[in-house]
Simulated scan of single mutants.
Amino acid sequence: MPILLLAAVTIAVIVIDQWSKQYIQAHMLPGMSLPVISNVFHITYVLNPGAAFGILENQRMFFIVIALFMLALSGYFFYRISATFRLLRLGISLLAGGAIGNVIDRVQTGYVVDFFDFRVWPVFNIADIAIVTGVGCVVYSLLFLPFPQEHQTK
């Protein structure tokens, strides 16, 4: 996958994530919930000072440092990964976009804006979707896709 396309994926994740969060903040108050499908899916404005499931609440600097470290590692390894590993490179791009989207929130306000609420799972956002999808692409690539011939040992 060409590097410009992967950069576009990362930038698209950041732009869509930030736009959606700004839209929610402009049109809702924290705690407000609008049913899309009653008792199944709601748009709920949540200010999350922690990670998934609210763990490590109010550890702003910890999350920023971890995200920046992960981004540095991603950048370091990205250029060392053969272009034939398309899904792995896409996963890293999605991870980077999602991490940057949530770090922007943490730097600006100290919390992350979440709003997708399926009532049986913690509320989440576009950046979280990109991170989970990126992790899935990376794990699948590493576990199930064969290494190209040039990378196999004889």
Rank of each mutant, 00 (worst) to 15 (best):
Met1Asp: 12
Pro2Tyr: 13
Pro2Cys: 06
Pro2Asn: 15
Leu4Glu: 15
Leu5Gly: 13
Leu5Val: 14
Ala7Phe: 15
Ala8Ile: 05
Val9Gly: 03
Val9Tyr: 10
Val9Leu: 14
Thr10Phe: 07
Ile11Asp: 05
Ile11Ser: 04
Val13Trp: 11
Val15Thr: 10
Ile16Tyr: 10
Ile16Cys: 08
Ile16Gln: 04
Asp17Ala: 12
Asp17Gln: 14
Trp19Asn: 08
Ser20Cys: 10
Lys21Ala: 05
Ile24Cys: 08
Gln25Lys: 14
Ala26Cys: 04
His27Trp: 07
His27Cys: 05
Met28Leu: 14
Leu29Pro: 02
Gly31Leu: 11
Met32Tyr: 14
Met32Cys: 11
Ser33Glu: 13
Leu34Asn: 09
Pro35Leu: 12
Val36Leu: 15
Ile37Val: 15
Ser38Cys: 03
Ser38Tyr: 07
His42Arg: 12
Thr44Ser: 12
Tyr45His: 15
Leu47Phe: 08
Leu47Ala: 14
Asn48Arg: 09
Asn48Gln: 04
Ala51Val: 10
Ala51Leu: 04
Ala52Arg: 07
Ala52Cys: 05
Ala52Trp: 06
Phe53Met: 14
Ile55Trp: 10
Ile55Gly: 04
Leu56Trp: 12
Leu56Glu: 07
Glu57Thr: 04
Gln59Glu: 08
Gln59Arg: 06
Arg60Asp: 14
Arg60Gly: 02
Phe63Tyr: 02
Phe63Met: 10
Ile64Cys: 12
Val65Cys: 07
Leu68Ile: 07
Phe69Tyr: 13
Ala72Leu: 15
Ala72Ile: 08
Leu73Asp: 08
Leu73Glu: 12
Ser74Ala: 10
Ser74Leu: 07
Ser74Cys: 08
Gly75Asn: 14
Gly75Met: 09
Phe77Lys: 00
Tyr79Glu: 09
Arg80Tyr: 01
Ser82Met: 02
Ser82Ile: 01
Ser82Pro: 01
Ala83Leu: 11
Ala83Gly: 09
Ala83Trp: 07
Thr84His: 14
Arg86Val: 05
Arg86Lys: 14
Arg89Val: 01
Ile92Val: 13
Ser93Lys: 09
Ser93Phe: 09
Ser93Tyr: 03
Ala96Arg: 10
Gly98Met: 11
Ile100Cys: 11
Ile100Met: 12
Asn102Asp: 06
Ile104Trp: 03
Arg106Val: 00
Arg106Gly: 04
Arg106Ser: 05
Val107Thr: 03
Gln108Asp: 07
Thr109Ile: 10
Tyr111Val: 03
Val112Leu: 06
Val113Gly: 02
Phe115Thr: 01
Phe115His: 01
Asp117Ala: 03
Phe118Ser: 05
Phe118Lys: 06
Val120Ile: 13
Trp121Thr: 03
Pro122Cys: 09
Pro122Ala: 01
Pro122Val: 01
Pro122Lys: 08
Val123Ile: 06
Ile126Trp: 06
Ala127Leu: 00
Ala130His: 00
Ala130Phe: 00
Ala130Trp: 02
Val132Arg: 06
Val132Glu: 01
Thr133Ile: 11
Thr133Asp: 11
Gly134Glu: 03
Val135Pro: 05
Val135Cys: 01
Gly136Ile: 04
Val138Glu: 02
Val139Arg: 00
Ser141Ala: 05
Leu142Ser: 03
Leu142Met: 05
Leu143Gly: 00
Leu145Val: 00
Pro148His: 02
Gln149Arg: 12
Gln149His: 03
Gln149Trp: 02
Gln149Met: 04
His151Asn: 13
Gln152Pro: 02
Thr153Phe: 07
